[in-house]
Design a protein around this nucleic acid. Structure first.
Lengths: 149, 149
DNA sequence: GTCGTTGCAAAGCGTTTGCAACTAT
DNA sequence: ATAGTTGCAAACGCTTTGCAACGAC
């Protein structure tokens, strides 16, 4: 499936008069094989491990480009911007401030929340752009137990 | 009221065996006079304009300290971390991705949302820690008009 | 051959650190 | 006098930039 994605990206690039290079192939492959999200600097690091010589600046330029083309999206987590393939866009990130765990609200739940907010405030939120920080169920239980004792 | 705040901060510092210095006074004053939020580097810049010689590192250390003491909080907006006095914590930031406008969900609405999410997902969100990106009512209307034409 | 793409090297930016000097208490 | 605090200067990590060489088409 990673191959399929690379092919479709190649397609997209061609439609825009852009080119597929080994570097881009490596970068796309890296992100497509990542479930969840990954920071630009991590992409740079990992791509570099596999294909020595890929320059960080190329990674940054490629990420920007792929996002403009709609292949990738980024969201803001605690550690900063993180990229993921657009097929994973739509997920609302729930990041636990205690254990660092990263859950996802279902797309349906996300939509419901979105509608609710927009109906009440007139503001149309994109709940996927920023993560939502908080306590996961597990850490919350621990915290309560601590309080009780 | 700015004075009151500075006094109460002084109080807090004393309780912890810490000291009130001219630099801290300037930093606290700057933040207390800011309605809304301000980035660390902006605090550094502004404080510097008023009290030349205040080193950026002092600003960063002070912000960290004041946050640990509960005097300040920070939230993540598009531009990164932003500080505000704790009395303004509780606000859910709604940031328009088009015009950059920054609205607030009422505290009551925020609470309702929070309860709703936690009831459904088991995750207890702090909706104030990250902003919520989206389109404000105004920009959304513009966008729709554009689409219709 | 054209023109998009890359690597390089440098600079930019915000932020952090160690340490000696300073100062609020 | 004692510790907390500051400025300095350097280092840091991530990201961006200009430009000449390169290479996909």
């Amino acid at each position: 499936m990673s191959t399929t994605s690379v092919e479709s990206v190649l397609q997209t690039l061609r439609e825009h008069g852009l080119r597929m290079t080994p570097q881009r192939r490596a970068i796309v492959a890296e992100i497509m094989s990542t479930s969840g999200h990954i920071s630009p600097s991590d992409v740079a690091r990992r791509v570099r491990e596999r294909v020595p010589g890929v320059n960080p600046s190329t990674v940054y330029r490629t990420l920007d480009l792929l996002e403009e083309l709609g292949v990738l999206s980024h969201a803001h987590l605690e550690s900063g911007a993180e990229y993921h393939h657009s097929s994973e866009a739509g997920h609302v990130h729930l990041v636990c401030s205690k254990c660092g765990g990263d859950e996802s609200l279902s797309v349906a739940e996300g939509e419901r929340l979105k509608d609710l907010i927009s109906r009440r405030s007139g503001f149309h939120p994109d709940l996927t752009h920023f993560a939502i920080s908080g306590l996961c169920a597990k850490c919350r239980r621990t915290a309560q137990a601590g309080r009780a004792s």
